[in-house]
Design a protein around this nucleic acid. Structure first.
Length: 864
RNA sequence: GGAUCCUUAGCUCAAUUGGCUAGAGCAUCUCGUUUACACCGAGGAGGUUAUAGGUUCGAGUCCUAUAGGAUCCACCA
């Protein structure tokens, strides 16, 4: 006989099993002959990265649904890809260049720099791909895409051209978030905020032709070089007289007005604010409304410009120090106070953001001809997309409602260069939007054209991921799989990505990109902290796979989780699921070692279901299949798994297998094993396929088996109740034995006037039923179909048993009163559903029976 | 300032959307014999579901308020 190891050695089989699946070709939907389609475009991870737990949990969910749908007979497409991740990758790569070669991007030049990142990403992508395969994702690798692939980017570029035609693109000098380290503009969403301890400075601005001052408060005194006004709240009585007067800007001696604006907070600082339109977002708005001059005093390297006079060339922080010193010397400095400041930082490199005026490209999100914002809102409000969790819909609606125009140009090299061309003769005022380089300038026929150097925001292309990867508009995949069924992502991508995909795909294709949008939560550590490299509290999924196997990791990532809700992960948890995998393995091991002729059974006949236990377990199985299927369809993975686990461990392993040792029925056992392998496969694909292959030897593959259905014909209701009763009797005996330390090896003698399933009760409760008991005293266990008298009266504490029984009677009495009252209540009868009423009636009967037997028992003990 | 989520056993989480005596796992305690499994089995202890009200025949679940925690968005001159 074949040796099977006691434990499932995951590492030994995983690679080969994945190869088996891959070789079969069924990851590719073209090889599945089915009219029913299911598609999920996988979110592309950053090509430069490595696999972390966030990816692992996402992929697990995607794969679970993918495998489930495939087993339901659909032609399933899970389309994988990689994202060039513009700024992030450039930041990483520049650091690498600096560290390894001591050079920067300018040393290489744009072309070489681009090419070398490209090569780097390609190499990393290979690595990343092998890691993704380890998770078990059943993705079609032959369709793998990269955001910079020509066919993908072409479609994304065409969107820009179309948007331009539709009047949704404009170029403008506006205030934007500038990262001095990345040297690029950022959209609002790419800016993070961080509270830091800082100072607020009070500076006196002298009023023209007066001895008086107006004091302004600022956290950034260096920007005063670019002030073009002082503003107060229009309702602020302290200052109404001053509005319209002029002040002399200290250090610069420029004359600027005092203006009134309702956006100024009276309570904050002195209620008077210096206005620097070039370096503050709110000041920019106020400056626009009051037509104030814009004076740029900070440049793109965060240094003072020529406009800043004697401070020119100084870094902002140096300039701040010098300016404060000069103000003090000249008597304009009033005081400083500590203040918590909410600093804007670059999401990617954490550098302090400088708001600057800069010429950038924008997408109008609410243009006349087509409103990205309104169309997306309409679709979402119409319920064209199902959200998991549902309340994220509201969050999305709110965010979209407040959406501002989107700055899409970045001054980095790693990305899609914007398809705009300038004529060298005509200058920047004239530009041509075209994917191909135009032959000549349409105005002057000049041939010297150069392309815009800016690149697109990464989200401009990844926001089109669904329809570009499917080859909109003519692609076969687009026609077959769009709109896709499912999209799964981390909840942090709700605004960044989900919203943009909805807007842009709707704009291009007229349809939403996906019908279901499922969010995973963040994976936190045991203490609920975010995992991060710097804290060193991260868990490496690959290490966990090596140690516990992928199936265990997959379970630990999705079980006990709720969509969109953060969850905690730690090794003990993974270990627990590894233990379950071992249990599954041992169910298989028992089945084959106990009966060498054992085999999996797809179908069995009613006559094969013989004993009460058989009937009971089949009924349990049916119930499990039913609810697991329903839960899966409702996308309740966690509940499905819980139900399955309970059946597998409690019902099958702990009860049915034990009974199988007493009364073997390999037909039923083979049938059960066939079913649980299929049910578990989406969740734990490796171990189930391994067991399956051991039986079928390559004849067929579990991955392609059909999802199971309950066989109601095999079910007999009566047996269920009886078996539950047998279980209860056995538990009661075990309970008594444990309570009174009766040696587990001791076979307790018992007498019975009424018994069913004698052999099972005898074996599992470790008792022996004999003709006549030696002792006249005995402890009784009474149920509907069983009456046992156990010869253990001399071993137990009678007083204690009496007390326990009395307590139970009391409890039952309370329950009975409660239910009786409920059933007597007219309102309850009128309004409660039929099902609930029946349930309660049944319950009442049960309690009444129980209380009867308990009373008998008490009487019996009292005799002693 | 606006919004969302969370608070259930010592710990981590459930509870099929308002209906069975609120369930699991881990940890803990007691005991371990069997034709799979000690990564195991049997049994026990552990709960006023954060607090206070309300709606309801019925509330962990719905509403209101309070407290604590988390997150997101906006603003902070």
């Amino acid at each position: 006989m074949k040796e099977i190891s006691k434990k499932y050695e995951a590492g030994k089989y995983e690679e080969n099993i994945y190869k088996l699946w891959e070789k079969s070709g069924f990851f590719n939907p073209d090889n599945i002959n089915s009219k029913k389609k299911y598609s999920n475009i996988l979110p592309p991870p950053n090509a430069n990265g490595g696999l972390h737990l966030g990816h692992a949990s996402g992929y697990t969910v995607m794969d679970i649904f993918g495998r489930f749908e495939r087993m339901k007979g659909k032609s399933v497409l899970l389309l994988p890809g990689k994202d060039h991740a513009g700024i992030q990758t450039q930041v990483v790569y520049e650091k690498k260049l600096e560290d390894e070669q001591g050079i920067n991007r300018n040393d290489l030049g744009r072309k070489k720099f681009f090419q070398s990142i490209y090569d780097f990403c390609l190499e990393r992508a290979n690595y990343m791909r092998s890691q993704e395969k380890k998770i078990g994702v059943s993705a079609d690798w032959s369709r793998e895409k990269f955001t910079l692939d020509t066919e993908v980017s072409k479609i994304a570029m065409e969107t820009f051209v179309k948007m331009h035609k539709d009047g949704m693109i404009y170029q403008g000098e506006r205030i934007i978030n500038w990262c001095p380290r990345c040297k690029t503009a950022l959209s609002d969403i790419e800016v993070d905020h961080k509270t830091v301890q800082g100072k607020i400075y009070f500076i006196k601005y002298p009023i023209q032709n007066s001895e008086k001052f107006i004091t302004v408060a600022t956290t950034r005194p260096e920007t005063m070089l670019g002030d073009s006004a002082v503003a107060v709240n229009s309702q602020d009585e302290r200052y109404t007289k001053l509005v319209g007067l002029k002040v002399i800007l200290p250090l610069e001696n420029r004359i600027i007005p005092i203006i009134a604006d309702k956006r100024i907070d009276k309570e904050f600082g002195t209620g008077a604010v210096k206005i620097t339109p070039a370096h503050d977002l709110l000041d920019w708005d106020i400056g626009q409304d009051h037509q104030l001059p814009i004076i740029q005093v900070i440049n793109e390297k965060a240094q003072i410009t020529k406009q800043g006079g004697k401070y020119q060339g100084q870094d902002v922080l140096v300039a701040r120090k010098n300016i404060l010193a000069d103000l003090k010397m000249q008597g304009f400095f009033e005081k400083e106070e500590d203040l918590e400041i909410n600093k804007s930082i670059c999401e990617r490199c954490k550098e302090t953001i400088e708001p600057l005026i800069s010429k950038q490209w924008f997408v109008a999100v609410d243009a006349k001809k087509y409103s990205l914002k309104k169309e997306a809102l309409k679709a979402i409000k119409n319920g064209e997309i199902k959200f998991f969790p549902e309340n994220f819909r509201k969050t999305m609606i709110q965010w979209l409602s407040n959406l501002h125009d989107w700055c899409i140009s970045r001054q980095i090299w790693w990305g899609h260069q914007i398809p705009v061309w300038y004529c060298e003769k005509c200058g920047e005022e004239e530009y041509i939007v075209s994917i191909e380089k135009p032959l000549a300038c349409p105005k002057c026929q000049g041939k010297k054209l150069r392309q815009e150097t800016d690149t697109f925001d990464t989200w401009f292309s990844s926001g089109q991921w669904v329809h570009t990867t499917l080859g909109y508009p003519q692609g076969k995949d687009f026609k077959e799989f769009y709109p896709t069924d499912m999209m799964i992502m981390g909840r942090d991508l709700l605004f960044f990505w989900a919203s943009r995909m909805i807007m842009m795909s709707l704009y291009r294709t007229g349809e939403v990109p996906f019908k279901n949008l499922f969010f995973t939560g963040l994976i936190r550590d045991k203490l609920g902290k975010k995992m991060s490299k710097s804290k060193g509290n991260g868990i490496d999924p690959l290490q966990m796979i090596d140690k516990y196997g992928v199936d265990a990791l997959r379970l630990s990532l999705v079980m006990d989780t709720t969509p969109g809700q953060d969850s905690r992960l730690y090794e003990e948890k993974i270990e627990g699921f590894r233990n379950f995998i071992t249990k599954l393995w041992n169910i298989y091991r028992y089945s084959t070692t106990a009966s060498p002729e054992f085999f999996l059974k797809e179908k069995i006949a009613s006559r094969d279901v013989k004993s009460v236990a058989d009937q009971w377990i089949i009924a349990k199985l049916n119930e499990t299949i039913e609810s697991v299927t329903i839960f899966m369809e409702k996308k309740e993975i966690s509940l499905a798994q819980e139900k399955l686990k309970k059946f597998t461990w409690d019902d099958l392993a702990d009860w049915y297998l034990e009974i199988h040792k007493i009364e073997k029925n390999n037909q039923v056992l083979g049938y059960l094993l066939d079913k649980i392998l299929k049910l578990w496969h989406p969740f734990t694909p490796f171990v189930t396929e391994k067991i399956w292959q051991d039986f079928w030897q390559g004849e067929k593959m579990l991955m392609m088996e059909k999802w199971v259905k309950p066989e109601k014909k095999l079910e007999i209701k009566k047996a269920q109740e009886l078996f539950e009763e047998i279980k209860e009797v056995i538990s009661k005996v075990r309970n008594l034995r444990a309570n009174y330390r009766i040696d587990p090896a001791k076979i307790v003698q018992a007498y019975s006037i009424k018994i069913k399933e004698q052999k099972i009760i005898e074996k599992l409760a470790r008792i022996e039923i004999i003709e006549k008991l030696a002792s006249t005293k005995s402890i009784q266990i009474i149920t509907k179909n069983v009456e046992l008298s156990l010869d253990i009266a001399n071993l137990i504490d009678i007083a204690k048993e009496k007390k326990r029984t009395k307590k139970e009677i009391e409890q039952l009495n309370q329950l009975i009163v409660k239910i009786k009252n409920l059933l007597a209540n007219k309102k309850f009868k009128d309004s409660a559903p039929e099902k609930v009423i029946l349930q309660n009636q049944k319950k009442l009967k049960e309690y009444q029976e129980k209380i009867k037997t308990q009373k008998e028992l008490l009487m019996n003990i009292t005799k002693f």
